[in-house]
Design a protein around this nucleic acid. Structure first.
Lengths: 343, 343
DNA sequence: TTGAATTGCGTTAACGTTAACGCGCTGTTG
DNA sequence: CAACAGCGCGTTAACGTTAACGCAATTCAA
């Protein structure tokens, strides 16, 4: 590997000048700049990260802007686990995360968290852009030298370093395929419980699920809206009302992590031809999966998303590497027999 | 973070002495050694990897001892992809891999590959210990200062830095669960095609599959041995003979990556109540999955195994970190609708 | 036209660790 | 008792990069 010193020798200049060119710090004539740049290109120079980090001696603070971990039935805890794991593996590089939580039902809360993160001058941001309306304006307020990465969702028209997420439509298709397998080819009626307030993800999932059955005349899909904000008793009532309004419902597709609440509500009324498929490997869902009250959980690999998000920031900020701009996470199919790997 | 210099100051000694204690290079009196060691413990000193790597200026060569990539229907190509990806992400750290391929049906070939790897004095070894009999004696010949990591399988009674693999028994259970879903509760006869020569993995898978149905009287499981070494025509004949020997076979569980050959052999005789479940996301299997000739593929996440294996060596050798000794990979359930993420 | 600012470059200390080298002291051997 | 080995320790150059500093030479403003 060629060094700055060797480049300087080849150019007949000093390392200071080479360094100035490398970092665009000016005070270099155009001819020398060109000369040095051509040598850099020819030799394929790459900076030695060890020397760099030793010299810089900086700690890298990444800001994580995400909903309160307990929201969505603890779904965001999973993301945090992946983020924390990445931080742990990168302690040698002085990487530290600061969390800026917000209430996912409050735009002002989101904007406040975002402002704080910007004020604290983070070296990079990991954002869960669940609030589609508030996000674009906030993203514009991020200083141009601060890279940001999306997890969970993405915001069109913005320019993140990377966007990490799952194909929600396709995950709905997977849910439908599994549902058809469970119910059997004879078909019947299946219900989609769309959780309110619904977001982009949830609608895509519903769409994917429905489109799978659209050319299968033996299946009928009913979509119901359920208030995810209701307390347990009220919620169970709502589910039961829906259940009794369908004559013979073969299965339920729940579009978010609240699957366990649906499964519990159905538990009394449930017979073995009533199936439940839902999302996200939160503890309660896994418990009911093992117990048999839930048949399948579709995993977004949320933990891996958090891990990959911090890793992307690390590679860009610390190692100065370029990285894939878009990462699609696999659609994980989880049942009682393989759920122990999705804690 | 405390430095060697600060330790030396606290002890009233020089950094050279501290360094000698840290590396056990002797030429230090017992009292000073104790004094320094206590300061190290008290302050929680951790060596600065950047300074270390900058000073050492070594490149780290890891040896990979694995079957020829084309064997097992190209299964080992997947492992190589993960290994190469890890190497790519670690170029900044001067990590390089050298491959030592062997014929998985020849012990002498394995031993030769192993000897070569040892002669070339690798900084660490990644081993796919598919040859259970030959492996223990080889492992004993590895110098004690060379760490080694297992992928795919493990060898009891040896002491690897880490063992990365999948719970084969449980993956068989998963296969059975999926099979029962596909065939339906009414039950019937299902066949297990155990590929010869069979190894530890394959027998575990068969066992897991069979045990799932052992308490379900509506299902009958037949286990057949098939010669994986046969050419395509001969192989297809064998499968057809088996198929015609069972009156109404509901499905086939193939215990390794040769699933595509079984699916092709069945293609003529196949009707829609004849299901195929098999292993490993090699290209041909994925193609038939999309086409509909295979219903499910169980993924060992082989690519991730290779990636994690190199990463484990890296963290231990380069970063001097301790690491989990055992990693169980998730049992991936792959169908046409989510297979695009398992290339 | 003199002082000040700017341009274009070189020099150097610092980051923390490693390992070779050197030096004084003590004990041993012929 | 001289020669020598070994012990216990300090000193120092090197690794590659960064960024502050310095210094001529030139340009610019008053």
């Amino acid at each position: 590997m060629i060094t700055i010193k060797e480049i300087a020798e080849q150019a007949g200049l000093s390392i200071g000048t080479v360094d100035r060119v490398l970092h665009g710090r000016g005070r270099v004539s155009k001819e020398t700049e060109q000369k040095i740049k051509s040598i850099i290109k020819k030799t394929g120079y790459r900076t030695n990260i060890h020397a760099r980090n030793l010299s810089m001696q900086t700690t890298h603070n990444f800001g994580v802007i995400m909903p309160f971990p307990r929201q969505d039935g603890g779904y965001w805890e999973i993301l945090r686990k992946g983020i924390d794991q990445a931080e742990g593996e990168l302690t040698s590089f002085n990487v530290h995360n600061s969390y800026f939580f917000f209430d996912k039902y409050s735009e002002s809360s989101f904007l406040k968290a975002g402002r704080e993160a910007i004020e604290k001058r983070m070296a990079g941001l990991l954002i869960a852009p669940v609030l589609l309306d508030a996000c674009p304006s906030f993203v514009k307020s991020i200083p141009p030298d601060v890279p940001y990465v999306y997890v969970d969702s993405t915001i069109p028209g913005t320019n993140p370093l990377a966007a990490i997420g799952q194909d929600s439509f396709q995950s709905g298709v997977c849910g439908a395929k599994l549902m058809r397998m469970l119910v059997g080819e004879r078909g019947g009626t299946v219900a989609v419980l769309r959780m309110l307030p619904n977001d982009f993800h949830i609608n895509e999932r519903v769409w994917g699920f429905s489109s799978f059955f659209s050319d299968d005349p033996s299946f009928t899909v009913h979509v119901f809206d359920v208030d995810g904000g209701a307390d347990d008793r009220e919620f169970a009532e709502g589910v039961k009302t829906i259940d009794s309004s369908i004559e013979r419902c073969g299965g339920y597709f729940v579009t978010n992590a609240e699957t366990h609440r649906v499964a519990k509500a159905l538990n009394g009324t449930r017979n073995d031809v009533k199936r439940v498929i839902g999302y996200d490997c939160i503890e309660e869902n896994l418990r009911l999966l093992r117990e048999g009250s839930i048949d399948f959980i579709i995993s977004q690999n949320t933990r891996e998303q958090g891990y990959a998000g911090i890793n992307t920031l690390f590679r860009h900020v610390v190692l100065k590497e370029s990285y894939a701009a878009e990462m699609r996470m696999p659609i994980g199919i989880v049942m009682a027999e393989n759920c122990s790997y999705y804690q």
